[in-house]
Design a protein around this nucleic acid. Structure first.
Lengths: 150, 150
DNA sequence: TGCTATGTAGGAATCATTCCTGTCTAGTGA
DNA sequence: TCACTAGACAGGAATGATTCCTACATAGCA
């Protein structure tokens, strides 16, 4: 989703986040991609436009934006954190081959609940669903590596 | 769940995992707790019985057991990996206060599926559901910190 | 018993992330 | 316009979980 600077400023102000050039660039890069980039990815993306950008600022800004509810952290495995500029409730489809993460918007999943017996007194405030599998390209790659005999 | 050495050996053999003293101790510690310990936790637990145990052996062994399908890795946030000796299909309830992870066994959750429209050609091989909230003790602690006026 | 593959220990290396410190900048009031 | 202050930024050092490397130990097999 392409954002104009005014959109970004409006969102920042709505969430009481001070607007700076660095923050706007980081947020724009995140919202304009569907690839759920890592902090390092974002650093490289933004550094092209702003060569003085520090890796540290990316981490700091992601922390600010996350606390403000403007971005979400997504975790796959225990390796580096990845970020999502889409904060509407949704879930993920993760490719075990290439690590690609795709969004899943599905009301039935959004409304999942735990039976009270299972909840054991927990005050449940949210949930996430992840589907794991292989994307179309990884399935094709796999077929090319080990072609079926005919 | 308390396991006798014979149980462990039988499981290892069934999964073609060579049996050693170190591996048996690590696996036993993991299966006998419900706390989803980290590698470091396991290292400390096992080191009490086997002071020569290396942290490295814990990581190596967890890798072997995971590849064999005897243990599962659970990730909460992007911090250290935590392990689960329960490999039957189940999901998790995670306390945002203390980090405690509890198992949820629920057939409805196990059978969740993605509509074909959402799957976009993915070959889905599994899924996980995480519920987030606050456990009973964290709710009580919170009430004690900010008591309600009557 | 010797050979070979695999397991183990310990230390070094890696890498994402956080911490620390000094500098910069925007906003405010005089 | 100027000084003051809080927060933002850059850069480097530090941290900590994990992996890599190497040498030694052990189990299984000929």
């Amino acid at each position: 989703m392409k954002l104009v600077p005014q959109d970004i400023e409006a969102r920042f102000r709505r969430h009481a986040v001070r607007v700076t050039r660095q923050r706007a660039a980081i947020y724009a890069a995140l919202v304009e991609t569907t690839s759920h980039p890592s902090a390092e990815d974002l650093y490289r993306m933004v550094k092209r436009q702003q060569p003085m950008m520090s890796r540290n600022t990316v981490y700091y800004t992601l922390g600010v934006l996350r606390n403000a509810g403007l971005v979400r952290e997504v975790n796959v495995g225990h390796d580096m954190a990845r970020y999502d500029g889409n904060v509407r409730m949704h879930h993920h489809l993760i490719c075990l081959g290439c690590g690609q993460i795709m969004d899943v918007m599905d009301d039935d999943l959004n409304q999942l609940q735990l039976s009270s017996g299972q909840a054991r007194g927990f005050d449940v405030v949210g949930h996430r669903v992840e589907f794991h599998g292989y994307c179309v390209s990884c399935q094709q790659a796999e077929r090319n590596v080990s072609p079926r005999r005919t």
